[in-house]
Amino acid sequence: MKARGYIGPGIHLRGTIDGSGELVVDGTLVGPVELAGVFTVGGRGAVTGDVQAKAVEVEGKLEGSVRAEDVAIRSGGALYGDVQALRVGLDDGGALHGTVDMDVELPEALLGGDA
């Protein structure tokens, strides 16, 4: 069991993050993230950059496009960017400014033509 990484509120990172494991950012991060694990923008965190991870949780502010299996925007969290995910959860009080792209299987009857 690997320890969960943590970037505290006073820490500023400018650059790229990649690797595996869990990471919580309560500080500021400017740059892309590629993580084979859970990436969390903490309540005091501010992240600017595209995020690709197994799962993404937004409790603070995230600006950038997100690609993950699971995306969860918690109450108080704000995501500015497009989301591509299998599952997206938006809690009451969370904000998402952007498009969501999930794999939607529509019934046959609704296929073809315009809405």
Binding site: K2, A3, R4, G5, Y6, I7, G8, I11, H12, L13, R14, G15, T16, I17, D18, G19, S20, G21, E22, L23, G27, G31, L35
Partner: peptide, 13 residues
């Protein structure tokens, strides 16, 4: 703050 094993950061801290 803790950068865990297996994670790489390239940039300024």
């Amino acid at each position: 703050s803790m950068l865990p094993e297996g994670v790489r950061f390239v940039g300024e801290v």
